[in-house]
Design a protein around this nucleic acid. Sequence first.
RNA 1: GGCUGGGUAGCUCAGCUGGUUAGAGCACGGCACUCAUAAUGCCGGGGUCGGCGGUUCAAGUCCGCCCCCAGCUACCA
Length: 522
Amino acid sequence: MSGRSTYYVTTPIYYVNDVPHIGHAYTTLACDVLARFMRLDGRDVHFLTGTDEHGQKVEKAAAAAGLAPQAFTDKVSQSFRDLVKTMNYSPDNFIRTTEPRHHAASQALWERLVTSGDIYLGKYAGWYSVRDEAYFVEGETEVGTDGKRRAVSSGAEVEWVEEPSYFFKLSAWADRLLDFYDKNPRFIAPESRRNEVISFVKGGLQDLSVSRTSFSWGVPVPGDAKHIMYVWLDALTNYITECGYPDTSNPLWKYWPADLHMVGKDIIRFHCVFWPAFLMSAGVAPPQRVFAHGWWTNEGQKISKSLGNVIDPVELVATYGLDPVRYFLLREVPFGNDGDLQRRALIGRLNGDLANAYGNLCQRVLSIVAKSAGGKVPAKGAIGEADTTLLDRGKGLLATVRTELNEQAFHRALTAIWEVIADANRYVDAQAPWALAKTDPARRDTVLWVLAETIRRVTLLVQPFMPDAAVKILDQLAVPATERAFAGFDKELVSGTALPAPQGVFPRFVEPAQDAKRGAAS
RNA sequence: GGCUGGGUAGCUCAGCUGGUUAGAGCACGGCACUCAUAAUGCCGGGGUCGGCGGUUCAAGUCCGCCCCCAGCUACCA
């Protein structure tokens, strides 16, 4: 036996020229839920996130700040490590492209590409803006009435510049990529993105410039130190750096190929076209799947720094609480679609799904147990049809959630869990344990046991989404820490186990009064 | 322009290979209950399923045309 099956999930490495925003938080959250679920499900998980710290922008920003690039990135990348704590992520490692092992891995990969004959020296040419210190493609420029060509974004004059550059023969890989997509239908998700990528590749591929000489903050090209490896070749390599590349005897190499690269929809091409081409050229297996999720808007408005409506995950968590934010982000929108972050909707989910449906279910059941059933797991008596129906719904949930998360369908997984919560609330009303207390205490206890047991199962599955809240509820059910993994899913609550006093887990969110707001403003 | 995916109750969306009176959640209205976080449950109003035409015994579900929305159409992390 080879032991537990591995599960390797990655976030993109985040570029350190920016502070973390909701987009970063969202991507990593999705990975975190998967990592936590897979661990509970007995998989041997490796969950990687990190920062991309090279490039001209970083070099310039460091200079502007009067710092050496390394000191600068040490400082800026910290905000991403802080977000890990704020959002309660559970990565197994936080990788940085400035690590020596990453330079070694990137250079090793480069050398393999050279050996494969896919690297050649040529010239990179484009419209260059001295003021912006950046290249623009033709479409990003326009010729003004004075006959001078300028960058559309900055208005700066551009000139045609050529610099020596190494190229990767991407043009030779189109057919092999299409063949790869064809044989691996799960490689790109969601489906609409898959179509886009395939049509892009079918349109023909150009060779890719993979080195620059215009700056020096990066990984030197082996054998030609004037050149720095360009952005994506360096950045993408992090996924195998982590596993020890090129040392395939590294213990972490068992995780490659990755089960899932989670990415935002803007960087799908790099992950679905360039990356598998690099890897195949180097004789390394491509990842198994890339999922491109959507973007958030803020109250219907596109998010942009210039509009000043960037969503700060730290503020969201401070206002609404961590677990409600985690829940909302993955429940509100079909994963893969764009979503709109509306405070009203968030509060609706918090009060409706969490406080009213789930929290109140726990509270109404546990308070009866505490007040009139002895404060212990109630005695399980004869189980009837209605009991079996509810219990079976809870039992079936694990398989359902497993299936949905295998497709990264977080919203459907949560919907399925909440359907059982709704069933449980209906069952409480139908069985009316408060009435049974007078007529049939034994039956009352059985009803309470069925409910507690259902809450246990539901909560085990809530753990990956809302770890803190789940702990509180499982504690109130006295579920041993050793029985919270899914191996213990069918280990029922034992009647007679002493329970702690119940306490609410999801308080309702009450909006500050409008009058108070106006009063404060005026 | 081309390609792809969409346009279904006030809002967000389900509706597999065509087949009984088109569904869910939220919101709204009424009722019930009182264990519970003024929570929960039940009932109800509300949709010419983007438009026009066609195929079929039968179309939201297939075909054609048109209108509208979004994404992609390469080197920006």
